[in-house]
Design a protein around this nucleic acid. Structure first.
Lengths: 148, 148
DNA sequence: AACTGATCGTCAGTGTTGCTGATGATCAGA
DNA sequence: TCTGATCATCAGCAACACTGACGATCAGTT
């Protein structure tokens, strides 16, 4: 058993609690990322979609949504924006016309390349305070916690 | 220089990216926490406010909001709910009547005690896949990344 | 060939969250 | 007493992601 239970000790800073730390770490990285991507006209979640599309054969909207862990109805609006910006194209899948095939345009690929650089800088800034070894460990731990 | 730049290698799973991992770790813990607290009639952000109130002398709304990193206008609605549930009380600070002194009621303290137990279980479930040492390391890393 | 049930993308509506900007009460200092 | 700042509140707004419904399409059955 750990020292979990009630434990109303006076030194318990609310900001030590895991839920708080995780939320604010996420907020901070999101802010850095959005700022870094802003000159490219996209934000963090756009970049997420681009990443999936760039590393996959042309996918259906649903596949992309599931990979990102977002709802299929949310994906519609996200792609609307990216399509209007000329970054992706949608067309019916000839093999199954219920589906849309989503692809990066050539401009989309250029945007993605630039976004990778920008994101890399944001992530480096976020991780600047810890060592490369701690970074690897941190990433590995997150992977374990998230999986399944 | 790291291996940051373009790097369009085929093994780059979008789900390996730090922003993705952090977001989903946060989502997972939030879901566990809300589920654990739900029988008590509060959720994760309510618990956050309770934590601040329980470990501080009676504070103004603004102090609590700033500690939690949320907006003062958001705090109003949050406390409205907790007050309606009989968990906190608000009254004008005699020393500065612009301020509201916010305090846990007796029932609020009981709720907080129970919430601590419930949250502890949620956190343990979240961390079950990694060792205690890795947990400490993880917490320490988050602390460093978030601070300032 | 027609029927049935499931899947995909879309849309309207909803709930949550957190923000901005304005207002009224109050305080501190000139 | 006047002025400017502070605190809590409220209305309005924007982002986000969900539910539920719909039409189009597909696959399997009869």
């Amino acid at each position: 058993m750990g020292s979990v239970s009630t434990d109303p000790n006076p030194t318990a800073d609310p900001r030590e609690v895991l839920a708080y730390l995780l939320k604010h770490a996420n907020l901070k990285l999101t802010a850095l990322m959005d700022a870094a991507l802003e000159p490219l006209g996209i934000d963090g979640k756009d970049f997420g979609a681009l990443r999936v599309l760039a590393h996959r054969e042309p996918s259906s909207q649903l596949q992309v949504a599931q990979t990102l862990g977002i709802d299929r109805t949310t994906m519609v609006a996200l792609l609307d924006v990216l399509e209007r910006k000329g970054i992706v194209t949608r067309r019916p899948d000839p093999a199954d016309r219920r589906r849309n095939v989503v692809e990066l345009t050539e401009q989309g690929m250029r945007t993605y390349e630039a976004a990778q650089v920008a994101y890399g800088k944001a992530e480096s800034a976020f991780l600047a305070a810890i060592s490369p070894a701690a970074t690897d460990q941190f990433r590995q731990t997150l992977r374990t916690l998230v999986e399944k």
